[in-house]
Structure formats: structure tokens, C-alpha cells
Amino acid sequence: MLSDAPVVTADPSAPIAIIAGTGFYNLAQLTDPTMRDVETAYGPARYVEGTWHGVRVLFLTRHGAGHSVPPHLVNYRANIAALADAGVRDVFAINAVGSIDTSLANGALVCLDDFLDFTKSRVLTFFDGSGPRGVVHVDVADAYHPALRRELLDAAAAVGVQLRDGGVYACFEGPRFESPAEVRMAALLGAHVAGMTGVPEVTLAVEAGLRYAAVSLVCNPCAGLSDVPITIEDVNAVLAASGERVLAVLDEVLARRAA
């Protein structure tokens, strides 16, 4: 069976989802936040529900409380299924990444438009042949939805935040950082940034019929591109210094949605 994911258009009454990882464990901007523990066909998931500029928002942190879940063990299917079950149609994601493109300094923001998948052991699809739709082949040419990308770029321009239009995200298995040879390989294949959580999250969102866009925040040069060893402390320092600019962009997106 050959099929595309369902076509989904904007629904002003649907909740907006924000998925974040390292450095983004709560959203102070949410009014009346409530923790929701939900069961899905793929296991349990947890998100915080609240409002932001009066817009209903579901905030999901990939790594759980206290960053307790490593990237290769995140239950991506349960996370996306939970959001879809809650009526979400649009997802904005945030990723902390290393830079492969040496023009991207620490703190740079990239609005992704493509990906490379170097993961090895993850459950990466809803369509494993066992469901009622059988085998499904989904087109991911626009996995990062053009309309949501445009919203992010316009919002960034409006609040004076520099957001690069386009970039290829190379997803590695983790939890270790990439080797210098892996970084050189990814660069040859056209990658601009490297991370550990962007895939299969983005492709599962497409399979679930959700519109998805992502902003990557550069926290370090990848291995082999700097003489300084990569440490999580340095990553967290950049997140602390630059994370507010990502939230300013999302704030403008939601303010425009509320207008």
C-alpha cells in the first residue's frame, strides 16, 4: 500500500504543542499550568497544559523530569501520539545542537528545513505493518512545514532575533557526542547542525498528520572543529545565555495567533 500522511490545515481552536529538550524544562510563560499524565497506544507520556497569550498550549519536555531520559530511549511514538490524541495540529520544536557549519557560532538559531538520520536502534514509525493501514510510505520532502517555518521566521524578524532560514539537521544516536570523522561525514552530506533528538520526532509528526517546525539553538562546535572538549556544562551555559531569544520568537508566534 502506498499512501501519504493525512493533510492537515491550521485549526485556530486546536491546542499548540511545544516540544523541547536540553535546557528547556519548564515554560514560565504558561498561565495555569497543569501536568497531564496520559496513556497512549505506545506507552505513557507527560506534558504540561496551560495557556500562552490565551492560546491553549501543551508543553512536552523530551527528557522528562530532571533530564532523566537519554535521547536514544525517549519514547517518541508515545510523545507524538499523546499530542495528536489531545487534538494538536501544529508542533513547534526546540533542539540544542552542535554546529557542523563553522559559520554558525554559539547562540545561533536555525529554522530547519531538512534532516539526515544517522540513528540506529530507535522505533521510528507508527506504520510497522500491524495497523489497519498496513504498510505506509510517507513523503517527508516538507517534513518541516513551510507555513509554520514562515511563522517562525516572520516572528523572529518582528522581535529582532536573527533566525537563519534553512538548515539540515543530522541526527545521531547519542548519548555520546559525535566523533570528528562522523562530523566530517555529515558535513560532506550537507548537514549544518548535529543533535540527538530531532529524528524520529519529525517523521512521526508527519505520519501522525501534524504540522511540525523546529528551531535549533547552537550550543557548541562539533567534535574536530574546536580545540576545546565538548562538555554539558558549556552547553548549558549557552542555553542559559541564549534560550530567551527562542522563547521570544515563540512568544511572538503565539501573540500573533491570539490576535
Rank of each mutant, 00 (worst) to 15 (best):
M35N: 10
P33Q: 06
L204C: 06
L104P: 13
L124C: 06
A191S: 09
P229H: 15
V193C: 09
S130W: 09
A223Y: 02
V135I: 15
V193Y: 12
G23Y: 10
Q29L: 01
G107I: 04
D32E: 10
Y42Q: 01
L124A: 07
L58I: 12
V57C: 10
R184V: 14
S103K: 01
T102N: 07
A20N: 06
D85W: 02
S68E: 10
F127V: 08
F177D: 01
A20T: 08
E182C: 11
L153F: 10
C171M: 06
G129Y: 11
T31G: 03
G174T: 15
A248V: 06
T197L: 04
T61A: 11
T119K: 02
G54T: 13
A194H: 07
A10T: 12
N106E: 09
A156R: 03
P180Q: 03
R211D: 04
A41R: 03
A78P: 11
S226Q: 12
D154C: 06
D139M: 09
E233L: 01
R46A: 15
V168E: 00
V161L: 06
L2E: 03
H72F: 11
P44C: 15
V88D: 00
A86I: 06
A237Q: 04
L188R: 09
V69G: 04
V215Y: 05
A241P: 06
R245D: 02
A186W: 09
S121P: 00
L112D: 05
L104D: 10
A258Y: 05
A84V: 08
A81N: 03
D32T: 14
G134N: 07
R184E: 10
S216W: 07
V48H: 02
A143L: 05
L217W: 11
F92N: 07
I16P: 03
D234H: 15
P71M: 08
V249S: 02
L204Q: 05
V91D: 07
G43Q: 14
A141K: 14
R122V: 12
N79Q: 09
Q29A: 04
H53S: 13
D114G: 07
Y42M: 01
D114M: 01
R149D: 08
